[in-house]
C-alpha cells in the first residue's frame, strides 16, 4: 500500500517546454525516498507539485483517497495540512519567535483570530514544546528566529513541519545551505523523527553520498524524467553518468 501515488505528472512553465514529462512514482508508507538529479531537472517542481505550491499541467497525485491535482480552495488547504514541508532556505518568519514559527504549523487547524491572539490550544503548545525538545532547541522557544544559526533554523523548520502531524513529509534540498556535519545531523533528525511518527519522507538532495546514507530508495531524474529508481546499492557510476551526464566528476 503506497502513501502517495503520482501518475503521469507533467509540468510546463512555458508552453511546449516541459520541465516534468510523464513522471510516475509510488511512495511507500514509510522510509526516506531521495530524489537526485542535476539542477534544473525538475526535482523542485516535482516536490512542489505534490502540495500544489506549483500547479501541475497534467497528471494525478493520489494521497489519502484524493487527487491533489484536482483540488482547489478550502479542499486544497485541508489536504495541505496533511503534508509537511522543509525548505532549503528554512523559510521561517524571522521576526517571529521560534515558538511562533513552530506553532504556525497548526494554522490549518485554528482560526486567523486565534493565530492573531496567539491563543493556540494547550495541546498544540505542549506538542510544540515536545518537538522543540526533540530537535534540541527546548531553551530557544522565546528566541527570535533570526538569532539562530542555519542548522538551528532548519531544526525549527522540521519541528514546524511535524507540528502539522503530517501523513507525508517533503524536503526540498534541506541540507544545501548547511555545512557537511550539520547536514548529516539534519538528515539524522528527519530520519528519526519521521520514523517515530511513521511518516514517509521525500527529499530532494544534491549530495549523493548523503542520500545513499539515509535513503532506502533513490530516484534519479534527468531532463524531467525518472531515469533511475531503486536501492542505493544499485546506483553505480554508470547510473550516475546517466543521471548527471559527463564522467570527469565521478570518482574512479
Amino acid at each position: 500500500m503506497s502513501a502517495l501515488s503520482i501518475r503521469g505528472l507533467a509540468k510546463e512553465y512555458v508552453r511546449g517546454k516541459p520541465v516534468l514529462r510523464d513522471v510516475s512514482l509510488d511512495v511507500a508508507a514509510a522510509g526516506i525516498t531521495a530524489i537526485i538529479g542535476p539542477s534544473g531537472t525538475g526535482k523542485s517542481t516535482l516536490i512542489r507539485c505534490i502540495n500544489r505550491l506549483i500547479d501541475p499541467t497534467a497528471g494525478e497525485i493520489l494521497f489519502e483517497d484524493q487527487d491533489l491535482a484536482r483540488l482547489s480552495g478550502r479542499a486544497l488547504r485541508l489536504a495541505r495540512r496533511r503534508i509537511g514541508m522543509v525548505f532549503q532556505e528554512y523559510n521561517l518568519v524571522e521576526r517571529l519567535t521560534v515558538m511562533e514559527n513552530v506553532l504556525s504549523g497548526r494554522l490549518g487547524y485554528v482560526s486567523a483570530w486565534t493565530a492573531w491572539r496567539r491563543t493556540f490550544p494547550e495541546a498544540d503548545v505542549a506538542r510544540a514544546f515536545h518537538l522543540l525538545e526533540r530537535v534540541g532547541l527546548a531553551d530557544f522557544a522565546r528566541r527570535r528566529a533570526d538569532e539562530l544559526s542555519g542548522g538551528q533554523r532548519q531544526r525549527v523548520g522540521i519541528a514546524r513541519a511535524l507540528m502539522q502531524a503530517p501523513g507525508l513529509l517533503l524536503a526540498d534540498e534541506p541540507t544545501s545551505s548547511l555545512d557537511p556535519k550539520t547536514s548529516v545531523e539534519i538528515m539524522e533528525l528527519m530520519r528519526d523523527l519521521a520514523a517515530e511518527s511513521g511518516v514517509p519522507v521525500i527529499v530532494n538532495i544534491h549530495q549523493v553520498d548523503l542520500a545513499r546514507r539515509f535513503a532506502g530508495r533513490m530516484v534519479g531524474m534527468s531532463g524531467g524524467r525518472i531515469v533511475y529508481d531503486g536501492a542505493p546499492e544499485g546506483l553505480g557510476n554508470a547510473e550516475l553518468k546517466a543521471i548527471y551526464g559527463g564522467e570527469s566528476w565521478l570518482s574512479p
Partner: peptide, 21 residues
C-alpha cells in the same frame, strides 16, 4: 516569498498568512 510559501504549505488561509507572515 519563502516564509509565505511555508505558511501556504501548512494549509494557512490568506488571512492567516497576513497574521503570521
Amino acid at each position: 516569498r519563502g516564509p509565505i510559501e511555508a505558511l501556504t504549505a501548512t494549509g494557512a488561509t490568506p488571512m492567516q498568512k497576513i497574521v503570521m507572515g
